[in-house]
């Protein structure tokens, strides 16, 4: 990554943090200042979905080209996605403590993100259980594709078909119209953008590390 990109990430995340904490927000019944979690928690979930999608795309590319670089890209994307899923779980759990009274309530959203963590945890177990690189890549690519099929269900569908305490109409209301104060909406969208930039930097670093490892292994073998 070039220095200009890094400076943009540095400045934009700093602005997001300033916007998250000190910019006044309108009173939201039942939430108050706790509504500020939306600037951090939702981008974490968005990045988790994005990285699992990328992991699935790289897995498809591996199966088409049989190129191990695509496999390490899929692995890196799944790792970063897993990290951001944990961050979304932790931020949500902290918010639940102050809003619902306990860190964990087995709310449909909490249950679905927990199952998602188990699904992707199994992906890493699968990878570590197989020593042969080609076999590992092939099986884990198939697994990553099947695992992603569950992501839209657990993130978007299940929490909406089961009754939940989780706020559902903070961004978009029941009629599909944007239901957010303009100042909050602009900070929220800027936060999504900034965290996406940060995600691509982290992903880039992770992929380059894995590619370097791969090239050293193939050099040692030859």
């Amino acid at each position: 990554m070039n220095n200009a990109y890094k400076i943009i990430v540095l400045v934009s995340i700093t602005l997001v943090l300033i916007g998250t904490t000190v910019v006044p927000i309108p009173f939201i019944p039942g939430l108050g200042d706790k509504a500020r979690i939306i600037y951090l928690h939702v981008p974490m979930s968005w990045i988790a979905v994005l990285s699992f999608l990328l992991s699935m795309i790289y897995s498809v590319q591996y199966l088409r080209k049989k190129d191990l670089v695509q496999d390490v890209k899929a692995q890196s994307a799944a790792e970063v996605g897993f990290l951001f899923t944990i961050l979304a779980t932790v931020t949500g759990s902290l918010w639940a403590k102050f809003n619902w009274g306990s860190f964990w309530n087995w709310d449909p959203r909490e249950t679905s993100i927990f199952i998602l963590l188990l699904i992707y945890g199994a992906y890493f177990s699968l990878r570590s259980a197989i020593e042969n690189h080609d076999q590992k890549a092939k099986l884990s690519s198939v697994y990553a594709i099947i695992a992603f099929v569950t992501v839209p269900f657990f993130i978007f569908i299940m929490p909406r078909i089961v009754d939940s305490l989780h706020p559902a109409d903070t961004i978009v209301d029941n009629q599909g119209k944007i239901n957010m104060n303009p100042v909050m909406l602009s900070i929220f969208l800027f936060s999504l953008f900034s965290f996406t930039l940060l995600f691509f930097w982290i992903l880039n670093v992770r992929m380059r590390t894995e590619k370097l490892k791969l090239s050293r292994i193939s050099k040692n073998n030859s």
């Binding site: 995340i13 943090l17 300033i18 904490t21």
Partner: peptide, 13 residues
């Protein structure tokens, strides 16, 4: 206290 939260968040970042 929000400013204190901001300072901590900026140090971590």
């Amino acid at each position: 206290s929000m400013y204190l939260v901001l300072i901590i968040a900026l140090v971590i970042w």
